[in-house]
Design a protein around this nucleic acid. Structure first.
Length: 260
DNA sequence: ATGGTCGACTCTCGA
């Protein structure tokens, strides 16, 4: 089965691209969406059901918003961390869906704005809360995929110009350390396992001229799998075709193929 | 290359 993650930067604006992705060859069985920017009351349920998919979602006005779209109906869904401290933003940034013994955590990790911003502290806390949630609800010996826009590039090969980004909220050591503390709970970077070479990106900044054409990008959308799940992984790839369509998102979809 | 653009929504913010 295929599991994909895609930061759509407004679901409404990207419906034609999502439709193409879900209708074509290699359509994912499970698609995790971020930055839907869509309130729950307006989520396009009928659009997805018309394509043969179920959907669960957690959005808010204007910003954030995540969803899990799937051919199968999830057995259980949770929104936010459920730690008694959830804000509207938290609930619109994390949704977990269970499909039998497979759990899929779809997250939109806060970007952080700048290292001296309170938003950056929120980002660091977000990672800590994710680790606590994984510790409490899951086991590294189970099948869990943590995916989404994680907003951290792990290594120098995950960005085009690493030396210009040492103070960036998505590349500074503090952010990397926070991500690594979650990964060290028991995740394998499935995409990097299958694609060891530089130049594999999932995000190209709109503000950089011809960023996609020149491949000036970042790998910040991740597929992180517990060992039993990564052992079942057969391939992973970024769907560059979606960027060739009209009005592309600044991210593209990243797909993992699993022998499940 | 965070100078730049894009989307949602207010006339600016977040990314």
């Amino acid at each position: 089965m295929r599991i994909a993650t895609f930061n759509v930067n407004s679901l409404k604006a990207r419906l034609p691209i999502v439709e193409r992705f879900l209708s074509g060859a290699g359509a994912p069985d499970i698609l995790c969406l971020q930055e839907t920017k869509c309130q729950d009351a307006y989520f396009p349920v009928d659009f997805f059901e018309g394509l043969g998919y179920r959907c669960v979602y957690s959005g808010m006005k204007s910003y954030n918003g995540v969803a899990v779209v799937s051919r199968a109906t999830p057995d259980r869904v949770s929104r936010g961390f459920g730690d008694g401290m959830d804000t509207e933003s938290d609930r619109a940034r994390l949704i977990i869906a269970d499909f039998g013994d497979l759990s899929v955590a779809c997250s939109y990790v806060p970007q952080g704005k700048s290292m001296d911003s309170p938003d950056f502290q929120y980002k660091l806390r977000f990672f800590d809360r994710l680790r606590s949630l994984f510790e409490a609800r899951f086991k590294p010996s189970g099948k869990l995929l943590w995916t989404g826009d994680i907003n951290v590039a792990r290594e120098d090969i995950d960005v085009t110009h690493p030396n210009n980004k040492r103070d960036h909220v998505c590349f500074c050591q503090e952010a990397k350390d926070a991500l690594e503390r979650v990964i060290s709970w028991g995740f394998v970077d499935v995409f990097r396992h299958h694609r060891p070479n530089p130049g594999e990106f999932s995000f190209w900044d709109y503000r950089v001229k011809d960023a996609f054409e020149r491949n000036i990008g970042w790998r910040i959308d991740h597929l992180l799998a517990t060992r039993p799940l990564s052992d079942a992984s057969e391939d992973a790839y970024a769907v560059r075709d979606l960027r060739a369509l009209e009005r592309p998102s600044d991210h593209t979809a990243v797909v993992g193929v699993f022998g499940l």
